[in-house]
Design a protein around this nucleic acid. Structure first.
Lengths: 123, 123, 123, 123
DNA sequence: GTGGTCTAGACCACC
DNA sequence: GTGGTCTAGACCACA
């Protein structure tokens, strides 16, 4: 994983985003066991407390759950994962449309360009 | 103008991007006079030398040209502006596709989602 | 090295010319490491920023390349060096013909004089 | 005439060079009357005293002579003019060879290049 | 008042 | 120690 952390946003929210991405992209599968907080923290080069905070938040959201003594696991609620995937995608889509609008393209023009670009990418 | 400058990338490149955006979005029209280096620097809250560096680079690219003692002007080469607009749009499209791919959507799925989203936005 | 800097032309362009001369004359060989910006600046008795500006321009032209943290190196593109050598020589030749023309010698007369002078110099 | 004066060499010597050039290039003909010191000074945008100094030196060299009450005239000693022309040309030729040597060309190579260039210029 | 250049001095990331 | 960036402040030519 990348673990590229920027300084203009709280670290723990970025950690959350990376883990969420791991879940929705299928790298972490439903029911899988997550690495330990300590291992994840080391991997991301952050303080374990920061990673702990990120995971606690994800747990509050129901994305992961803890089994005492045996570790943290990815939720098995597939619908929740699908919903998260969709909502994150929508965020990026909205942001993308806004960027294109700033450049000077309407939604229609953006659609046209993206379809054209898609054809070139899938040749 | 926004002039939101982050610290994870050289400021002068960000200034370039903002000015490029101003040109391709039509806020600065071909042949228009740009504010003076000093004014732009004050507006962006950076050192005049930094703004100067950004503008010198844009000049090298042909996006602006200088009339000594009277100021800097936006290029009147409309094709160049259109090309820049398109290349910047393509960059964002490519980046967008990559982001969606990370989330777990193929190009085809992304297209479908974006068309669906576009319909909702244009209702 | 000479580093004789005049005040009727930007210093950084003169620095560029000196370094170019060093490259085409073979004093700096392809792939050689240049002295550090600071050392070159001290040697030429200019501000490091000025030397940096000169080198950045040479880098843009492809005459030198940078390996971050380890230094700047002369291009290994021998053809580029040969081309530069030739173009600089042509500039001087053209300028020389113009000077001779001002004095009142045609190109043919200049050729004759220079051949005569060459014979005397090579006796 | 150009009258481009640099600050890295005494002005009056540069004025001498310009006038010498005028003489050897035939713009001022043997026996011609020179403009007045005042007019020449105004034309060159220098102090009349400076121009006076330049002319006095040329007079000492015999390049010009003064007829009281009627002004300064170009020498009618054609041989002197020819000699001057030749010596100035030789200076430039010598300097040119040195420049080419710095670039990395021998006298022979320089001759070859200059003959080649001359052909292109006289096409 | 405009852009352009230069200096001095500082801080940063990288290895 | 390396290149890279940034700021502050100064001076210049030009019209």
């Amino acid at each position: 994983m990348a673990w590229e952390l920027k300084s203009d946003r709280p670290i723990y929210t970025q950690l959350q985003d990376y883990i969420k991405l791991g879940i929705i992209s299928g790298r972490y599968l439903p029911g899988d066991k997550l690495p330990s907080v300590r291992d994840l923290a080391e991997e991301a080069a952050v303080n374990p407390n920061t990673m702990q905070k990120a995971l606690a938040e994800l747990e509050r959201l129901g994305m992961v759950y803890t089994q005492r003594t045996s570790g943290r696991f990815i939720t098995e609620d597939i619908k929740m994962i699908e919903d998260l995937k969709e909502s994150i995608a929508k965020e990026h889509i909205t942001e993308f449309f806004e960027t294109m609008k700033k450049i000077g393209f309407s939604i229609q023009e953006t659609i046209q360009m993206i379809e054209k670009e898609a054809k070139e990418l899938t040749i």
